[in-house]
Amino acid sequence: MKKIKILSLSLVVVFAGLVVYANLRPLSIAEKLKTVDLASYRLEGLMTPAERSALEQKISALPGVTACSVNKEGRVASVLFRRKEIDEAQLASHLSNQGQWQVAQKTLQASGGCPVHGMTASFYAFISVLDLRN
């Protein structure tokens, strides 16, 4: 029973330490920026280069969108956005341009790829959840 109490107390102390660390650690300039999410969409329908450029400009100008790119073929659009201001469904609606193009959200790969992985990313995710400044 005593061991359980000591173990519980230790866990509480460690957790409290992590909460303190998460909220007091100095944030870099980049970390102070508002967080973003990325959504990728498949587009169907003919699109001229001018229409592609106009669509990029239109989506980029939406409140909550920080960047939008449509590939040269006009088949894929990717959007960086702030979830508190706009969501994926609203983005899809804007991308369709009142039904001019058919839009379907792509499911992005869940693992592998770019070198932001392993324990570093998991620890960062955990600390970010505890950080009340976000």
């Binding site: 970390e31 920026l33 967080t35 894929v76 992005l108």
Partner: peptide
């Protein structure tokens, strides 16, 4: 970041990182 994800040639290299909220923040901040 949106350019590389829309780029068929290299998007697969980035998809997993940008599809996860926390990995995306790490990549972007880095």
């Amino acid at each position: 970041l949106t350019n590389v994800v829309a780029d068929d040639m290299i998007s697969s290299r980035f998809e997993a990182a940008v599809g996860n909220h926390y990995r995306l923040q790490m990549l972007r901040n880095n």
